[in-house]
Design a protein around this nucleic acid. Structure first.
Lengths: 148, 148
DNA sequence: ATTTGTGCAAATCGTTTGCATCTGA
DNA sequence: TCAGATGCAAACGATTTGCACAAAT
């Protein structure tokens, strides 16, 4: 139960409020209390896939009272600002991915969990030209897994 | 009334009721009026991607009064029976694909439309072994397109 | 006769919106 | 100050569910 983790601050996270504020500002977002708090929850822990509901709970636990509406607003603003990526991967809920770089996902059908496909050299070959008048925004690859 | 055309055309469809009934029976489904009617709407026209709402409208137009609840039930039963494939591809609505073979999709972000990637030699290379205790159900590839 | 399917309306779930109230630059 | 954020509750759209009724074997 205890990792050799010296300090939970060796993790990517542990940005100071002002560093987070600066990051938000650079993204064109006014650094409000809620946005700073949510940004820290989102980005202080490396790559994660999180739903609005989950983030809301974390916020409450972290004693950052935010309404669900604000969570949704914030997630979408962060997405528009390029800080997050939206994953539409399983039917119902929407996941937000703190890793906006090019990568692919596992989806565990058993519980709907989403995870990155690790260290992969995954490549998609043989894609035809996109239809006239359109351009490729991105290519999503989802590997659906069932319990063995 | 009259039977203007026995087989509407060379289109895949035009299965007789009894042929459809047989197909349902083979899939382990009791061939009821509604299921037969819906199966014909779904499968008489080659590959399609359709939502519950859309199928409901088609059914009404085809003078097959079915409730939306039954549409949902039927789509899921067909999916469980392997007659359809569920596509969770864009946030809100769920698409059902009458083509259950291995193929990939375009999603037009502009309107959420889904289409098959045509005649493709698409291959996904470099996937790692699935995590212990799991097996790959399938690999989905979605190419998201925006208007140019 | 028994089992299974169907229709309806109400219920649920995730998400969005309208609006009055705050807050940060 | 004052545009922009936030909270709340009501609104929403897609899907599901509970239960009385109807149809298939």
């Amino acid at each position: 139960m205890h990792e050799p983790t010296r300090q939970r601050t060796g993790i990517p996270g542990a940005m100071s409020d002002s560093a987070v504020a600066e990051r938000l500002r650079r993204a064109g977002l006014r650094p409000t209390r809620q946005r700073i708090a949510l940004a820290k929850l989102l980005f202080d822990r490396g790559d994660r896939h999180i739903t609005a509901e989950e983030l809301h709970e974390e916020a409450i636990i972290a004693r950052v009272p935010v309404s669900l509406a604000t969570i949704y607003n914030t997630l979408h603003q962060f997405t528009d600002a390029g800080l997050l990526r939206e994953l539409s991967v399983s039917g119902a809920k929407t996941y937000f991915d703190t890793n906006t770089s090019n990568h692919y996902h596992y989806v565990f059908e058993a519980d709907g969990r989403v995870e990155d496909i690790p260290a992969s050299e995954v490549r998609v070959l043989g894609l035809p030209e996109p239809p006239a008048g359109t351009r490729v925004l991105r290519v999503d690859v989802v590997v659906r897994l069932a319990d063995d």
